[in-house]
Structure formats: structure tokens, C-alpha cells
Design a protein around this nucleic acid. Sequence first.
DNA 1: TCATCATTCAATCAATCAATTGAATGTAGG
DNA 2: CCTACATTCAATTGATTGATTGAATGATGA
Lengths: 224, 224
Amino acid sequence: MTRLPSAQSLVQDSADLARTLGHPHRLSLLEHIAQGERAVESLAQLSGLSVANASQHLQHLKRAGLVQTRRDGKRVLYRLGDGPILPLLAALREFSEQQRRRVQAMVDDSVYQPDTLEAIDCDALLQRLQDGDVTLLDVRTEADYALGHLPGAINIPFEELAQRLAELPADRPVVAYCRGPHCLLSHDTVIALRARGLEALRLINGYPQWQAAGLTVETGPAVQ
Amino acid sequence: MTRLPSAQSLVQDSADLARTLGHPHRLSLLEHIAQGERAVESLAQLSGLSVANASQHLQHLKRAGLVQTRRDGKRVLYRLGDGPILPLLAALREFSEQQRRRVQAMVDDSVYQPDTLEAIDCDALLQRLQDGDVTLLDVRTEADYALGHLPGAINIPFEELAQRLAELPADRPVVAYCRGPHCLLSHDTVIALRARGLEALRLINGYPQWQAAGLTVETGPAVQ
DNA sequence: TCATCATTCAATCAATCAATTGAATGTAGG
DNA sequence: CCTACATTCAATTGATTGATTGAATGATGA
């Protein structure tokens, strides 16, 4: 009849974990790491942080078991830790997004449609890819794309989308995807494409979720 | 091509949400609220907080949309908010638990078995209940039990378990359940029962998860 | 071995958060 | 209308947390 205190400390552990996730910089870092192994400087740059600051947050993530490290020459590479981290991030995003929709709906009453209608999940995408009736669009950076992407996806970073619209076939729907749970690039892409008369959907999960189940095509020997 | 800033603020929203969950008192309150509607004083008592302090944390939870309130006479009753909160709590617990197992495994090498083997999920429980070959045991407090419990469950609060072992049929397995994700009472129950020679399992999800899908038997008109 | 580079540590200051106390709000019942 | 009660607000204090700076570590390649 011992081990009662453990019940208390599981709450404590969960709270510690949540607190670790409770900082936008760490969340951002984590999301970039979810794309693949990254060095500290890359991560600092991607998240707009000083190297020292990034390092500090990364250690925090490491202490929580959310990331692991590996040394490669002079660099230290960070990767996601073991365990159900992606579902956790997804759950976090899921609730935030719904919460945001509710608030938005209060402000402008039915000005724009809920985006759920424009989203499909991994399974549905797989199906449509096999049928071959969609264009798959990766709106992440070239670096992310080079480190791995969904099979058959073409890469147009979101910033360049306006200038490079011609590269997208106009006769069939586009499915856009981005970094993952907290990235709204694919969402914005759908809005942009629809505004230009294209049929557009977004992958409700990002690249990491796909990676955790399906196929990837890789290039780029450069592990940055 | 507007709305780019939104991508940033979704990360911010998620971080705020995580930070809200990042305090053991709030997590504890939330878990008690997940059992059913509760008044402030009850919650303060259950979580071992002063009323003012509990109220403060509850407001924090309310601001995040995790709980909602309703006035009933002099009392203010708190209930869970809309949205996928249970999955979020489950994901949090899931990772923490796995993390803990990993650490534990490092300390004492294979001293005790991972508890996954002793756990079953809602569907499996439903199946076994229909077959009628298990005893269902609710180890929460009498108050929790009175406000709602799984069909056919008998209630023995964990503290009284040692004295009331005789109430459990010895000829068939016991499935124990407790408050939910962060509660290890059912886990401890399994260990206690097994130590006494009974066959014991635990429901991997607690009462709230069951409630969000299956049947409940209710008593107690007293909404405390 | 030494110079160089990427990363981490250590120390500081500013900012934020949590618990406590006592007062204020709002509802029910006389 | 006034009192009693549950809850919330406001203000104070002490404790944590985050960003910044500069120094220290650890690995590479001559």
C-alpha cells in the first residue's frame, strides 16, 4: 500500500511538461526539430533567437525528454525525443485552434468559413495521391524540403507563392502542407489559392505526422 | 496574402494554453472538474487549496477556455469547457508516464514490470463487461462515485481498500478505475490487489474518458 | 599541441507569477 | 432593505523565469 505519493508526482510531472511547452520559443524550436535533425545555430536562426538563448531553451526541452542530442563533429544536432510527442503537440494545437475559431466566430459573425471543410487528413491524402488527381504542394522553406518531403510534392515556399503560381496546374486541386500543428502556412496558402480561383485543400497534419506513418522522399546529404 | 501574423500567434496561443496547464494546482483542479460539475469550495477542498487561491486558478483556467461556469444560487459551478480537453490531458499524461517509466527503468533495472500489461482500454472493458466475467471497482471517493460512475461498478475508496478486501469476489479478475489521466490510484490498486493474490487490471482511461463515450449510472441529486 | 569554431555555462537584471490577506461583489432569504 | 454567505477582486510579498553578456568547454584540423 505504498507508492501513494507517486500519484501526486505524476501531476507534478505533467505540470512540468506543460510548463516546458508553455513558452512560444520552445514550441517553435520543437516544431522545427520535428522537421528533422537540426543544429543549434540553424534552430536559433529559424526561430529568430540568439544562439545562447536558443541553447538555453533547448536544454530545457532536453531535460523534459522532448528532444535528444547527438554530436556530429563540431555541431550538436537536436532531434525529437522518444514517446508520443507529436500527438501531444497536435492536441495542444487542436484545442487552441478550436478556441480561436470560437473567439473569431464571436467577433465577425460568419465572415469566413471554418477551415475544417478545407482540410483532409493523412489517410485521405494517401487515397487521393494514389488516384493521382491532386497536386501536392510543400510551402515550407527550401531547406526543410531538401531534408525530406512527401512523395511527389512540389516545393514553393509560402513567400514565393504569389510569383510562382504558374507552376501549379490549374486543372486539378492542390493539397498544401506545412511544418505541422502550429504552422498556419498551409491554411494561408489555401486562402490565397482559393482567392485566385484554384481549388485548394490543406493537410490537417504537417510533415512530421506524415513522417510518423508514411513514405518520404529524401534528398540533401547536408544535415544542417 | 495577408494573415501571416496569425501563424505566429497560434504558437503563442498554444504556449499560453500549455502554460495554463503548467501548474500542478490547475491540473489537479481540472481533473476534479472533469469528474463533473463542482463548486469552488469543493474544488478547493479536493485540491487542498484555500478558496481564494482556488478561485484564482479557476479564473485562469476559465480565461483559457478550459472550464466554464454556471451560477446555481449562491454557488458558482465549474464544468469542463468545450473542445478536445480530455485528449489533451491524456496526451500530457501519456508522455509523462512513458518518460517516468524510462527513468524508472534506468534506476532499478527491471525490478517491476511495466504497467501497460495490466491495463485495458474502454473498448476492451466494455467487451469484458458484456461477457460478465469481471468485477468493476471504482476507487474514487464516495462523493465522486455518487455523482456518477460506470455501470455495475462497486465503490471502495482507495484508502479503505485494505479493510474492505472481502467485498471483492476472489474468483474473477478486478478492473479498477480512478479519476483519470493523472490519477494513479487505479495503478496502485492493481499493485495492492496483486500483492494479495487477486487478478487485477486497471482501466487505462479514467471516468471522464468513459463518460465521453459510454454509459453511466447516476445517483446523488446533490450537485456539490 | 595550438588555434578555431560551435555550443554551453554562469551571473546578472528585469519581468512575471503564485500565495496570502482583507475588502468588495452579488445572490438568497427573511 | 438588510444580513448572511459564496465567490471574486485588489494589493502586497516572495519566488521563478527569461534574456543578455561574457567566459568556459569540447572537438576539429593543421
